[in-house]
Design a binder for these strands. Structure first.
Lengths: 364, 364
DNA sequence: CCGTATTTGTTCGTATGTATT
DNA sequence: CAATACATACGAACAAATACG
């Protein structure tokens, strides 16, 4: 049950049964435990169980037969095209999201589809709720940016359900670790950060601080690229030079840690940041401390956003082909809807981003 | 009651009430006796009455409101709820749109609705196509930012159709000129620009250039505020000091015109811009020409976006309560869906923005 | 075919919670 | 604040349909 605990008892039972049905754990025609069994098992009165079942029957999830029992209804016989595609994003980042959605929308609108938009605010429970909503709404396909993709997720069941119902889906930006082979359009984050870190080492920097996001796969992969670039030229990996942050502390942790490092006279040649927003904050922290960029310390961002171009010292960064990412995901989804039996090679698109050199790095 | 006596008590009550409604003895909107009243009058238990009423509600004959009563429904207007709300924006401006949509999404998601997103790219034909699509999709409501709101539109028929189908809609940001009294959530653009221009006159400026967008109602209203502020202190209106631009030439016209003015030694004390993006371009143009901001010329923006805060000289601007705008629109729509007969006073929300003084203006 | 257990359907009573006026 | 109206939840009894030995 484990659901919205502030809800009513009957609605908890409804969402429990609904989930079982939507996820295919109770199959059409299958009998549901009797009212008395459910009441006893869940410590509810029979009246409450009846209320839940009567509502489910009304919504067409189950049907009851007098004297026989209650059965799961077959709702899929009437699966019509809705021409709606679900799009679930993590949090509406001001500088990435709109362009990606625009790319998706352009391709899908051209093909007569509309997008149903949801954003999870990087909250896993909301992701559950919205996936369930999408299943109920009978969408024709789904494009989803996974929430906290580096963390354990118990939402895998929804993806299985999508597959059971024959609804294609495409991951963008990231993917869950057990689902590397599922359809996806991603950026090669490791390669991107590898090119940043290599660029910094070529400028002669050795004490390179890396700042990474710990709860999404992008952060993990960018960290890999950072470590690989340093290893290539024989710099031993130094955990003290790596700062990890989470969605929840992104506004304070990176800048605060850099400040502490400066106060403790931790040697810093360069700072390679998870994205432009962090880089901009790092730039401000350094400036406030009287450290010049790039003369004293080099700083790099990631995403080539307005944070990079509007920073007093334009930030060297990695481009983010936002529109292209959205368009590619939409096109892949359309192909999959046309031809459901696509091979793995065709359902994985990796876009390699490029280093964009601006003014925030100098030779040591 | 006089009906099939072999039936159940609750079904007798159902057919009694159904008949009253179908024969028009109980009219749509009219209140039905309370559960307790019916129970007492008909010598039934309240539970039995509730059973009958809940089935009638399910069939769409009546609807209940917690704490108020049970009412006769208008069966001609009961469409099937899709729990989808259409949202049509003009063009996905990077710095306004995501927050507005986020505000809309937050309120609607909380209430179990999803948004179907479309953007017109400020193209009137696309607006037609998308309005038609929304009508086909059977949405429960619509939030729309009108495309080229200051121009003639021949999409009025779609709004009429929405009304005929009983689908409520809310304008945001702007409205068409023949539809001033339709439900809307807008910013008081005239007041916003009035406060900007008044601020500039109070600093002693007289030759104040105004740059406005000609094809949306926001531009028209901001121009009104500008003209009113100048008129207030007796500055005669000078058309040579006003630059009009359109969606299509927004990237070049404003900056190019300022450059021409500078070359022609047109006197400029200050430039009041349509938005921060234009103001940033004007700032760059002035700087490239060797004109200092704010020492030589004052510049103002509008929207309080990152263009304002990331400009080397932070731009004095007008705030844009993006989230609040979206939330207010969503809440208004929800109210209208609940209570279709809302008066005009309640369906028009005007948010008055505030001047945000930063560093780009100085005394003459 | 009968009897019994099971399952859903109808109806009552009672108590408490919550929204509206 | 009190009264009113709907909402949730428990308990109990009996009826009607079905399944099965």
């Amino acid at each position: 049950m484990h659901k919205d605990s502030n809800q009513t008892k009957y609605s908890m039972l409804i969402s429990y049964l609904k989930e079982e049905i939507l996820l295919g754990r109770i199959k059409p025609g299958e009998q549901i435990p009797s009212e008395n069994t459910l009441a006893k098992k869940l410590s509810l009165s029979r009246h409450t169980v009846r209320k839940a079942i009567s509502m489910l029957a009304n919504e067409g999830y189950v049907y009851t037969e007098h004297g026989r029992g209650t059965y799961c209804a077959d709702r899929n016989k009437t699966r019509v095209e809705t021409k709606n595609i679900g799009v679930i994003t993590t949090y509406i980042s001001e500088y990435i999201f709109p362009r990606v959605v625009q790319g998706i929308d352009r391709v899908l609108s051209e093909n007569g589809y509309s997008i149903i938009l949801k954003n999870t605010g990087n909250n896993t429970e909301k992701e559950s709720a919205y996936l369930e909503e999408m299943l109920e709404k009978n969408i024709d396909g789904l494009i989803i940016e996974p929430t906290k993709s580096a963390m354990y997720t118990n939402n895998l069941k929804y993806y299985e359900a999508l597959e059971n119902h024959g609804i294609p889906y495409v991951f963008i930006h990231g993917y869950y670790q057990k689902m590397e082979d599922k359809p996806q359009v991603i950026l090669d984050d490791e390669a991107g950060m590898y090119s940043v870190a290599s660029y910094l080492t070529e400028l002669g920097h050795r004490e390179i601080i890396g700042i990474f996001k710990a709860d999404d796969i992008q952060g993990i992969n960018r960290h890999k690229g950072y470590a690989r670039a340093l290893a290539r030229i024989g710099i031993p990996y130094n955990p003290d030079n790596v700062i990890w942050f989470y969605t929840e502390d992104r506004a304070v942790k990176p800048a605060a840690t850099i400040r502490t490092m400066l106060e403790n006279k931790h040697g810093i040649d360069a700072v390679a940041c998870y994205n432009d927003e962090i880089a901009f904050k790092v730039y401000e922290t350094l400036r406030d401390f009287g450290v010049r960029v790039p003369e004293d310390v080099s700083v790099t961002g990631y995403d080539d956003s307005y944070f990079s171009s509007n920073c007093p010292v334009k930030l060297t960064t990695v481009n983010h082909p936002k529109d292209m990412l959205g368009e590619a995901a939409a096109r892949l989804l359309l192909e999959m809807m046309k031809n459901p039996a696509m091979g793995r090679e065709q359902t994985r698109k990796v876009i390699v981003p490029e280093l964009v050199v601006k003014d925030s790095c100098a030779k040591k």
